[in-house]
Amino acid sequence: MKLRDIKEILNADVIVGEDKLDIEVKTAFGADLMSDVLAFAKAGSMLLTGLTNTQVVRIANVLDIAAIILVRGKKPPPETVSLAKDLHIPILTTKFILFETAGRLYAKGIVGCIEKVESGSERI
């Protein structure tokens, strides 16, 4: 699915990356805990989050995240927008809550970047 389709499904606004809507995305990870994003999100996935600070963009950059989708009607502050522009990471915003965002994308064929995390086991 193209990022352009994600935009339609989520009725999203494109804050950064209007020129990148043709990238292909197949997987997603949703969290508001940056340590969990670092631990589990995979390269090429979308990151669905309610966090809007610059850390989200830096982590997305370190992990080669394809695009950041801000949920629950959150708007990124100017410093987040400018860092995302510098690092060429698309940011879309949707008013849907995380549960609805995930549900709607899942119904259209997007899957988790991993399915499960084994409890307390080695996670590499």
């Binding site: 940056m34 340590s35 969990d36 989050t49 966090l51």
Partner: peptide, 9 residues
């Protein structure tokens, strides 16, 4: 509130 401090570091 920054998304850290969940005891996972």
């Amino acid at each position: 509130e920054m998304g850290f401090g969940a005891g996972m570091g």
